[in-house]
Design a binder for these strands. Structure first.
Lengths: 350, 350
DNA sequence: CGTCACTGTGATATCGTTCTCAGAACTGCT
DNA sequence: AGCAGTTCTGAGAACGATATCACAGTGACG
């Protein structure tokens, strides 16, 4: 009754030790590259490890107190290319540094986000990267911080929590985009978007306002709650007495929603209304009217955040220190939806 | 010297037991919903768990032999919306079933894929979902299978390995797309794509061939290796003596590459060349010429695969049984790049 | 030659959980 | 009463790795 059908092939450190005729500690020291092992012993052990195809059991290592060498990443969604690019970069950098990534898409569901955070605690996650979706999980994050868990927020922040932050220059980006429209002679510009509760979005709104006010123009806003169809409201605004002649869309999904509606209503861009979006995407240049957009360096965001997190794991294994802040620049990618000539006409084709 | 600066707040099962004045086994039984615990005891323990904010340590559970309740997902890339949608669905279904997802994008790098698989072994992953990128890791997968690890392949398979499979009807999809072009009167159709070594792609090629042969037409192919720019080759073909009048693109990235090139060269779609792509994407309808494409149910693929995997975890905890196979249907989304009228003209707007 | 510092090695305890087994208390049945 | 079969409970041994401590050996230095 002792032998199972298949021995499950679990080679343990003890097996390796036995094969070498040494103690487990010697093997452990070799695995972890610690001092106080003679060269020939290292070789002997390494041979045995290779021969037996031994791999350390991470669960045991984690249990014994070592960091789990796994970082958690929470994003609102993977369908949005901004987040998926970001996630990809995170995963890549983490892997380079010997960390695994545990990925969650919370789909902006508050309870899910909370559940995911609690799962992470359960699993001795080494650190957390999060594009936070709601203030509801702030308390939980605080609690994790207090226990020394490093946390880095990406793209958005909430006040009053000492976490690392990696953001983009939202104010500048929005300011530049708005100015570009103003330079085209637009005076009535509508700022459209969701989720004004996120500071990234509200920063963009600030940038828009500033540009308008600097030009002595009256900013107009159309901000709706998530789940509300924004298209009809845009159409309504366009049919009002003094309609906007340009639209500034505050993010990816807003741009797409607006473009879809404009197309359905056969409203011509940029003749009837110009549009600039915040957050560029791959296919923007292949659209019916190539979209002028503020490019956010999504992958860079992920890379920086991951490095920041892993750095703080390295140094701050004690109390988990050093919340810091990185702000990355954006770039205005001029295509045609703003009213500019096709790029191929004014510069070299590409 | 005993007290650390912060006690790290690790509430263990023993703390809960002590708080209730019972043994740890009783608490364990309550946590796992096992029999032989009195109702009032269950309540007492549950209260203490809530009060102390206790959460079981997954590392310890995993070590003790329980499944790690984590599944691994390997996809070639997250930038491709097909995979990111799929990944999202996986993550969602897994979460519903109480499993976490460990996500990897191997970026079609053979060594990375191998490394990831070995990491998974190390971490007592309960099961593996993979969109395989190369035959190189087949052996490793076999090895894992032999040790009772459930494996489900998504979208592609390789012969000679007994894993679960979730695929789409590639042959039918390609056949239908090709026929649609033939119905438009096209006789010289070029089938373009990468990665012919994947069976999903080769099945699409088969479907294309079959449709052409059924119609008594000569199939033409343009198949290049990954990393090769396909655009120039397409242009060359279009400038040949008897140029194709339609293109069938074998996947997402091919469609986009071809569209980009056609746009740059100012070749009109569908007048100069019609195009249908395999694998639809969100923005296809907003493109300069809305792309007719074969829609693959990416999310469904992920969902089914995850369910299959988790089912096999549930039943086959012994030897890891039941490789099975699911094939999902595709759908031809007719837009305008094939030469059809705009949808809004021939049916209700949407 | 004794003390010290350092290298190389292994026995043992420990991490937090669950499994095994054993016992206590209670039933029901001869 | 005696015995078997429940239900409820807990002590102790795992799981596989690492930290700690102990000990032997080797020079170095006074």
């Amino acid at each position: 009754m002792r032998m199972s059908i298949r021995s499950r092939s679990v080679v343990t450190i003890a097996d390796v030790a036995r094969a070498c005729g040494v103690g487990t500690m010697t093997v452990s020291r070799v695995i972890n590259g610690k001092k106080h092992v003679s060269p020939e012993m290292i070789q002997r052990v390494e041979e045995a490890i290779a021969r037996l195809n031994y791999q350390p059991n991470e669960a045991a290592r984690t249990l014994k107190g070592r960091t789990s060498r796994t970082i958690g990443l929470i994003v609102p969604s993977l369908s949005d290319p901004f987040f998926s690019q970001c996630a990809h970069a995170v995963q890549q950098v983490a892997a380079e540094q010997g960390y695994m990534t545990m990925l969650f898409a919370c789909e902006a569901n508050r309870n899910v986000e909370a559940e995911e955070l609690s799962q992470m605690r359960s699993r001795n996650i080494a650190g957390i990267l999060i594009v936070p979706s709601s203030e509801n999980s702030l308390e939980q994050l605080q609690e994790l911080r207090r226990n020394g868990m490093p946390v880095v927020m990406i793209d958005r922040t909430f006040a009053g929590i000492d976490v690392g932050e990696v953001m983009v220059e939202n104010v500048e980006g929005a300011w530049r985009a708005t100015n570009h429209l103003i330079d085209h002679g637009h005076q009535r510009i509508l700022c459209v978007g969701y989720d004004r509760e996120y500071n990234s979005i509200s920063q963009r709104i600030d940038g828009f306002k500033k540009a308008m006010q600097d030009a002595g123009l009256q900013p107009q806003h159309l901000l709706v709650n998530r789940g509300v169809a924004i298209g009809p409201k845009v159409i309504a605004a366009l049919r009002s007495p003094k309609p906007p002649t340009a639209i500034f869309a505050l993010n990816n999904v807003t741009s797409v929603a607006v473009l879809t509606t404009l197309k359905r209503e056969e409203i011509r861009i940029p003749q009837q209304v110009a549009i600039i979006g915040f957050d560029d995407f791959d296919l923007a240049s292949l659209l019916a009217v190539p979209l002028t957009a503020v490019r956010q360096p999504a992958a860079e965001l992920g890379r920086h955040a991951t490095r920041m997190l892993i750095d703080s794991l390295r140094v701050g294994n004690g109390t988990g220190r050093m919340p810091s802040r990185i702000v990355l620049p954006t770039e205005l990618i001029v295509r045609q939806s703003c009213g500019c000539e096709p790029i191929s006409r004014i510069s070299h084709p590409r």
